Simulated assay, not measured.
Amino acid sequence: MNVDEGAIDRREAFLRALVGDAAALARAGFARQTGQAVSMKGPQDYLTETDGQVEDHLRARIAEAFPEDGFLGEEGGGEPGAQAWVVDPIDGTANFARSIPHFCISIAFIAGGEVQLGAIVNPVLDEVYFARLGRGASLNGRPIHVSATTDIAATSFEMGWSNRRPLARYIAALNELFEAGSNVRRGACGALGLAYVADGRSDGYAELHMNSWDCLAGLLLVREAGGVTGPFLSLGGLLAGAPVLAAAPGVAGVLSQATGISLLAGPDLLTEANEEDQRKTA
């Protein structure tokens, strides 16, 4: 689908400035977090005051700059429409709540049926990952690329856990990966897990169910860094969530086989039909 490159240029410049403001808010919240009360949205699903503050800030800034764009946030929801910003204000909230500096802000922009822009920032380490469709991926302005490994015995995968899918499937996938010779870890921040695949810190990331605000920016990063992913938008993942896989090409097949998540054969498009279905079920 055609997009207005000038419109994407404007949003890219805006997003590069926006992530800095959001990171400052998150850092301040993290400094205040030690010993503070934490709310629970559900089992192992944490909520802090900073989640809401960061999302409200992002929503307001985007609405002011681009009132024609939709917005979908983890905390406040929204109506994405044909072009929209998809935001997780704090991914890795369980880490954040325990003063573990492994959390991030994830922002993606969708237009023309595809993710056009993606940014993931770790506020504590001041690491900013950025990608634009067709123009590569970077970390703090430096181009990044997925790992070149083809030896499964040298791999380090990350696998996220979701209580939306049977625990037995997760355990079975872990077991198969360990038996294949891989190391498997869990950092409890899926967006950063995907970013780490993009810059070669991990060889692959998989999760049996993930929400769009957690993964859209990261999936774009991985593809723009030379990696391969599973489908997501074409599975209705924008509103309903879907399985996620991202990996270095040389070992993606092993991760796909272990998890049962297929590899993407072409562009991951949010088709007009899928979009209309999602509007009806929203």
Rank of each mutant, 00 (worst) to 15 (best):
V254E: 14
A206M: 04
R279I: 10
S156E: 13
D56Q: 10
A28R: 14
Q36N: 03
T271Q: 06
G73S: 08
D88R: 13
L139S: 06
R135G: 09
V146D: 02
E275D: 11
D199N: 15
G81N: 06
R61E: 15
E74L: 15
M40I: 09
G118N: 07
P143Q: 06
A258M: 06
A153R: 13
G42E: 01
E176K: 15
T34D: 06
L235W: 10
A252F: 02
F178Y: 15
G81T: 09
D203H: 05
W85Y: 14
P67I: 01
N95G: 13
W161N: 07
S106Q: 09
P101Q: 09
S99R: 05
C189W: 05
A131F: 03
A191V: 07
H102R: 05
L177A: 06
G136D: 15
Y196P: 01
L194I: 10
T48M: 03
S147W: 01
F30I: 04
A22P: 05
R16S: 15
V222D: 04
G193M: 00
S156G: 04
A137W: 02
R132P: 09
A198Q: 02
S147A: 11
F71N: 02
P80E: 09
M159H: 02
N2V: 15
G6Y: 08
E79K: 11
